[in-house]
Amino acid sequence: MPRSSHALVAALVIALPTAASAASPQSFKGEYTVSFLGLSIARSTFSSHYENGAYAIEGSVSAAGLAKLFDDTRGTISSKGTISGQKMVPQAFRADYTSGKKASSIDIRFSNGNVTSTRVIPAPGKRDPKAWVPLGAGDLASVLDPMAATVIHADSLDQVCGRKVKFYDGEMRADLTLTYASKGTISVPGYKGDTVTCQMGFEPVAGYRKGRKALNYLKNKSRMMVTFAPLGQTGVYAPIHATVGTQIGTLTISARRFEAVQ
């Protein structure tokens, strides 16, 4: 998988709200823009549906603006699973995308929240055992896929932050920690109301190469802030705005539309 494509998909996944947890069927739609230094570099859209304790999400991502001159990446992402209490229990995650003429895909399957299989095309190359941190026993138990990891089930805005999320993207296992930063309000097409902002910490656990500067920066120096808003009356809180500090500048992910649909 091209590293640039992987990074784009990871960034956009932050901006893909997922399922609802209400008793009646509910659907949501959203549109997001990723910008760098004020310039739009990517766009994403999503649709999600919840019914009878099951969720399903479909999204699309594509490079935009000047980014298309350097990496014309586009693709689709899907996720499905169930909700048990306030816990997301993924069943399957898939991403299919192209960068230029190169096609890539990630397919992850789960059972009771544990990863049972991972298929990445093209297959990763041989790993240097001295430089690579391998996945260990238990690393893929009770983890969330990239979509399920982006939403929070909570009783109120006050309880959204103050938690750790175990995240697996088909190669790397990492922990995301959310610490309370502030409350506020926001107005975008489809939503106007209260929000809560968490500072997000990043800790790679396994499935990565030691000494990678980008990962070290995310872990030790990056300032990552995620603002959550409620999806209707569902008890689900999804990102509506985020900033991610990188070695070359700050990525900003903003909702252009964030709404429940009939």
Rank of each mutant, 00 (worst) to 15 (best):
S79E: 02
G85K: 12
Q86C: 04
M88Y: 11
M88P: 04
P90D: 03
P90V: 00
P90T: 04
Q91H: 08
Q91F: 00
R94K: 11
D96Y: 01
Y97V: 00
T98V: 09
T98L: 00
S99E: 14
G100W: 00
G100I: 00
G100V: 01
K101E: 06
I106V: 15
R109K: 15
F110K: 05
F110H: 05
S111T: 14
N112F: 03
N114A: 15
N114D: 15
T116S: 12
T116L: 12
T116V: 15
T118P: 08
T118G: 09
T118I: 12
R119C: 00
A123D: 13
P124D: 04
G125N: 07
G125R: 10
P129K: 09
P129F: 05
P129R: 08
W132L: 05
W132G: 10
P134L: 02
P134K: 03
L135M: 06
L135F: 01
A137R: 12
A137P: 11
A137F: 00
G138N: 10
L140M: 10
V143Q: 02
L144R: 14
L144V: 09
L144I: 06
P146V: 04
M147R: 04
M147Y: 11
A148W: 03
V151L: 06
V151E: 03
V151Y: 05
I152M: 12
I152S: 06
I152T: 10
I152Q: 07
H153Q: 09
A154E: 04
A154D: 08
A154P: 13
D155H: 07
D158Y: 03
D158S: 15
V160N: 07
G162W: 00
R163C: 01
R163S: 03
K164H: 02
V165S: 08
F167I: 07
Y168I: 02
Y168K: 10
E171Q: 14
D175Y: 15
L176V: 14
Y180H: 15
A181L: 14
K183P: 04
G184M: 03
I186W: 08
G190T: 11
G190K: 10
K192E: 13
G193R: 08
